[in-house]
Amino acid sequence: MKKTALSRRSLLASALGLTLAGMIWPDLALAEDFKMGLLVPGSVSEEGWNRIGYNALKGVEDQLDAKISYVELQQNPASFEKAFRDYASQGYKVILGHGFEFQDAALEVALDYPDTYFLISSSSIHEGNVIGLNTDTSQPFYLMGVIAAKMGKKAGLVGGMEIPPIQQAFAGFKNGAKSVNPDFPISEAYIGNFTDTTAAKEAALSMISQGADFVVPNASGATVGGYQAIAESGPDVRSFSIFSDFTPVAPNNILGLYVADYAQGVVEVVRSIKDGSPPTENVVFGLKDPKVISFTLRDDGPVSVPEDIRAEVKAISEKVAAGEIKTGAD
């Protein structure tokens, strides 16, 4: 009791200076609305990771007639738990924490809100109402690696920061390439953030100058810089478009598109929650879920993958989907 009194006094003291007592939180939303909230670590305005989370939220709004809301937390761990709590206490049924870093906070809050489902992107957790959703990006990257090793001389990978979704993707690429040619040279560089398009561009340019003819950038908002480098280096440099469609940036270089419709995956998971049959284990999307992950090769571009390689890639893709080939690390 003493502790409580102490805290109340300090709370009062701080509130006093701003003379803000007596206001009541306007709670306008109706109880029966199905509501979903989203926590993203950065800005949804960039093509990249955060936009993917936002698109998932919009998908749920459109297809499941849900009320939605999102908050950008600027990678600030101190805010995670509060944001989860804000949503949960306002009756949100599903809250998506878009990134593994939200996991600890969700576990903490989930204990107090057993009726709310906490989905965590890029996580393999399943504890009660906290459910991890993972897109196995190593699978499409494995296919890219196969194509690169068959068609090219050297590959370059430009990453943002060394975080699991990116490490996992690059591991897939390397495993794919090595399955074709164990000595296929691949260089890798991290720019150390997700905003510096200039650095992403220069990193790609330097790889190209050192002989890389397959370059794949993967740096969220800064990714576009990598494609510019590729486009400026002429049609002999090949690439794949990842997450968003970057073909307008590098129309002469992109051989294929990996599009993750994470939104569709999330919509299905949320639908199952809405219908009262939530997932019983953590969810992993892969090539087995063509609605979620699609890897398509272009036919309309000036360059394209030859027929024989296409056939091989298709066969490998089917094996990956069936779980016969392991694409990721360890």
């Binding site: 200076g17 908050v71 804000d86």
Partner: peptide
């Protein structure tokens, strides 16, 4: 102590504002 409290209030409030009205948190 006061200015720190004020900046924390603004930071916290901007998160609430985005949740309720989708105003960019920046």
């Amino acid at each position: 102590i006061i200015s720190g409290g004020l900046f924390a209030t603004l930071r916290s409030g901007s998160e609430v504002l985005q949740i309720t009205s989708q105003v960019p948190q920046v």
